[in-house]
Design a protein around this nucleic acid. Sequence first.
DNA 1: GCGACAG
DNA 2: ATCTTGTCGC
Length: 263
Amino acid sequence: MSQPRPDLAPDADLSREEMETLQREIADVAVFDDAFAFDTDALSNPLAATSSGGQPPVVVGIDQSFLTNADGDQDRALSAVVAMRGGEVIERVFAVTPLEIPYIPGLLSFREGAPILAALEELSVTPDLFLFDGSGRIHFRQAGIATHMGVVRDVPSIGVAKSLLCGSPRGNLEDLSEGTTVGIESNARVDAPDGTLLGYAVQTRQYESPNRYINPLYVSPGHRVGPETAADIALALSASYKLPEPVRLADKYADDAKTSLDD
DNA sequence: GCGACAG
DNA sequence: ATCTTGTCGC
């Protein structure tokens, strides 16, 4: 059984090359297959009494917003964490930490990892699953923020991104019907054999009629979850909105908490 | 050199 | 991510 790896936590003081080396190490220990004990069917059902007789699993959604100083510069990141069980919110916490580095595609976890880990420390319930706003295995070095955080805490995790960082869709992504998934495989930009399945484009919501259509989500394994299960869970946790509820609520909480701070 | 690029 | 009104469609 794997263990938490606090030694692999993101360090914003590392050189860019060291960050990339750390990401390859993280991808190496990450598990991109189902390796969890909770009951997937009980994720969104409030009354689900699991086969083992316990409570439904605790799903935690995580998202960030940014705070500005007097000069108008973004100087702090706010991480919002929303814990849900059986479709209901059971706890919310957030943490603010100073921003050390700018946003660099592929190095997001080194910018946002500190506030996330700090916020997770505040959580009193024990998470069974993390849902991140960002990529997991769909990443140049197969170590997006969902993978990085999942490995450090050794908690099953899934990356839910609104746009595609890298990789190639195995089919057309325009105007997919609700519930449809399209595989995303590695290409030359990804540190994996070409054709490796990295995740799925997932159409959680779609308009009924013509003209406009909603873009899919890009769901990928973070840690201890396989690509199919990750896509299934994203669909199961999406209600009336495009984003799965835990992520959508974390997104809103990050915004509300930010507003309540610099009011 | 040129293009791509989560949040 | 963030800055932001109106506006198209159900």
